[in-house]
Write a protein that binds this DNA or RNA. Structure first.
Length: 428
RNA sequence: GGAGACGUGGCCGAGCCAGGUUGAAGGCGCUUCCCUGCUAAGGAAGUAACGUCGUAAGGCGUUCGUGGGUUCAAAUCCCACCGUCUCCGCCA
C-alpha cells in the first residue's frame, strides 16, 4: 500500500511513477478527493466527541452534587451531539473504507532506477552465463516430459488423472532429485537465513498483506468452507510472520527462508505451457526473505540475488539475469531481478527466480514496523523476497541439460551430497 | 465437535460483580540524573502506538482481543465473532 501522506504531498510524483508501469492513475485523484473529505469530517467528529466527553464529566459532577435537573438538560444536549457524532462517524468510516479499497488495488511505485518499458521485451539483460546454443547436442534437445516418461521419473498422465491438467507427479529417482534440490536450496543459505516451515493455508488478511489480494484473487485457490487460501508462495506467510509487530532495529535485517508447496490457479494461462513442468498448479519452492531498514535494502536485494544466482550457477545451468522493466514488475515490487535458466530440450528460457524489493509497500499492508535505535517513533520496514530455488523448472533444466547420448542423466556434482551416492539416473 | 476459564501498555499484573478526573494502580524491564572509590543496594524523573490540527510548544481524538449494542458517559453492562488455556471426544 502506498503512503497516503505521500499521495497528499506529491500526487504528481506518485502518478508519474505509476504511469511508468502503465497503470491508470485515476484512482490517485479519487483517493485525494475522498481523503480531503474524510479528514474534514473526522475533525468535525473529533470536536463533537471532545464536547460529549466534557459534558459527560459535568453530568457526573452534577449528579454527585444532587443537581439532577441541570444534569438532565446537559444530557439532552449530549444526546443530540451523540446522534450527530454517529452520523459523522459512519460517513468517515465509509470514506476510509473506500480509500483503503482503492489503495489496496494500487501497485507499488517502481524504483527510479528500474528500466523503462511496459512489457517483458523491455527487460534489460544484465548478464548471460554458460550459454552457447551451438554447444547443445541432439541428445540434449529432448523435452523433459519425454525424458521423464522414458525413465519413469515423471508421471504427468497419472497426476492429471487424479488432479487434472497442469499437475505433475515425480517418481523414483525423479522424486529423489526433487527432494535433493529442496535440501540443496535450503542448506546453502543456512549460514544467514532462519529456516521456517510455515502453514500453506492462510487467512484472507494474510494474503492481503503481501498484495496477492484483493487484486489477484483469481490466481489463488480458495477453500470456501473455512475461508482459507492456499499460498501461491512462501512470501505470503513469511510476510505475515511479524505482521503487526514493532521490531528492534538491532534485529534487522531479519533473514528467513522456507520450503513450501506453492499453489497457483494460473487463471488466464489456460492452454499455455501446459506440457510437463513448465507451468504447474502445485510446485515446491525454497523462498528467501528479508525484512530490513531502508538503508539496508539495496545491499539485501543484491545479497538475495547473488544467493539465488549462485545456486543456479553451482548446478552448472546456463542462465541469465534480467532487470525487469517497470511494466513487468509484479504489483508489490519496486525493483525486480529475474533469473532464467536455459532448458535446451524445450529450447526456452525459464524463469526460476524473481528477486523483488518491495520497499515499505508490504510492510504497510501487514503493518510491520521497527524502532530506530536513534531518534523516536517507528518506521515501516522494507521487505525483500526471492526464490532461492523453484524446483520444477530447475528439475526440467537439469534433466535436459545433463542428458547423455545413451539417454541416461548424470547428476550435477553440487547435488551429490544430497543424493546419497546416486550420481546418475540410468537409461532404461 | 462438547463443557468450563480467560483475553488490559515492552513484559507481569490490578481494576470489571456495584459504569463517571483510569491511558489505565503496583511491579519488572528500559532511559536519564543523584548518591556511594568500582559494583551491588538506594533515591528522583521519564518510559505506547496511531490519526488529525499546528512552523513549533502543544491541542484534540482513537486504541484495555475484534466488531456491534445500551448509556449523557463503557476496560467496566449486553450480543456476536476471533483467539488462548483446561477437561472430554476424535485423530497422524
Amino acid at each position: 500500500m502506498l503512503d497516503i501522506k505521500l499521495i497528499r504531498n506529491d500526487p504528481e510524483a506518485v502518478k508519474a511513477a505509476l504511469a511508468r508501469r502503465g497503470e491508470p492513475t485515476s484512482s490517485i485523484d479519487e483517493v485525494l478527493e475522498l481523503d480531503t473529505r474524510m479528514r474534514a469530517i473526522s475533525t468535525e467528529r473529533d470536536d463533537i466527541r471532545a464536547e460529549v466527553k466534557q459534558i459527560s464529566e459535568q453530568v457526573g459532577a452534577l449528579h454527585k452534587d444532587g443537581k439532577a435537573d441541570d444534569a438532565a438538560a446537559l444530557q439532552t444536549t449530549s444526546r443530540e451531539l451523540g446522534d450527530k457524532e454517529k452520523a459523522l462517524t459512519e460517513e468517515a468510516n465509509e470514506l476510509q473504507a473506500a480509500i483503503r479499497s482503492l489503495l489496496l488495488n494500487v501497485s507499488n511505485m517502481p524504483a527510479p532506477e528500474a528500466p523503462d518499458g511496459l512489457t517483458e521485451d523491455d527487460n534489460v539483460e544484465l548478464r548471460v552465463e554458460d550459454f552457447d546454443l551451438a554447444s547443445y547436442a541432439e541428445h540434449q534437445r529432448v523435452p523433459h516430459w519425454g525424458i521423464g516418461e522414458d525413465l519413469g521419473i515423471l508421471d504427468v498422465d497419472r497426476a492429471v488423472r487424479m488432479s487434472g491438467s497442469m499437475f505433475a507427479m515425480y517418481r523414483g529417482a525423479g522424486a529423489r532429485l526433487l527432494r535433493a534440490l529442496i535440501n540443496y536450496g535450503l542448506d546453502r543459505n543456512r549460514d544467514a537465513f532462519e529456516e521456517v516451515r510455515p502453514p500453506t493455508m492462510v487467512k484472507t488478511d494474510t494474503m492481503v498483506g503481501t498484495g496477492h489480494l484483493p487484486k489477484f484473487a483469481d490466481d489463488a485457490y480458495h477453500l470456501e468452507r473455512d475461508d482459507l487460501w492456499a499460498i501461491p508462495t512462501a512470501e505470503v506467510p513469511l510476510t505475515s510472520m511479524v505482521a503487526g509487530e514493532i521490531l528492534d532495529e538491532g534485529d534487522l535485517p531479519l533473514r528467513l527462508m522456507a520450503h513450501t508447496s506453492c499453489y497457483r490457479r494460473e487463471a488466464g494461462s489456460a492452454g499455455k505451457d501446459t506440457r510437463g513442468l513448465l507451468r504447474v498448479h502445485e510446485f515446491d519452492k525454497v523462498e528467501l526473505y528479508a525484512f530490513c531498514t531502508p538503508d539496508q535494502a539495496q545491499a539485501m536485494h543484491m545479497e538475495i540475488l547473488e544467493r539465488a544466482e549462485n545456486a543456479i550457477r553451482d548446478l552448472g545451468l546456463a542462465h541469465r539475469v534480467l532487470d525487469l522493466a517497470c511494466g513487468d514488475i509484479s504489483g508489490a515490487g519496486a525493483r525486480t531481478y529475474d533469473i532464467e535458466v536455459f532448458a535446451p530440450g524445450v529450447d526456452r528460457w525459464l524463469e526460476v527466480s524473481s528477486v523483488s524489493w518491495c520497499t515499505d509497500f508490504q510492510a504497510r499492508r501487514a503493518n510491520v514496523r521497527y524502532r530506530p535505535s536513534e531518534g523516536k517513533g517507528t518506521e515501516f520496514v522494507h521487505s525483500l523476497n526471492g526464490s532461492g530455488l523453484a524446483v520444477p523448472r530447475v528439475w526440467a533444466a537439469i534433466v535436459e541439460t545433463y542428458r547423455r547420448p545413451d539417454g541416461s542423466i548424470c547428476m550435477p556434482e553440487a547435488l551429490h551430497p544430497y543424493l546419497g551416492g546416486m550420481t546418475e539416473i540410468p537409461a532404461v
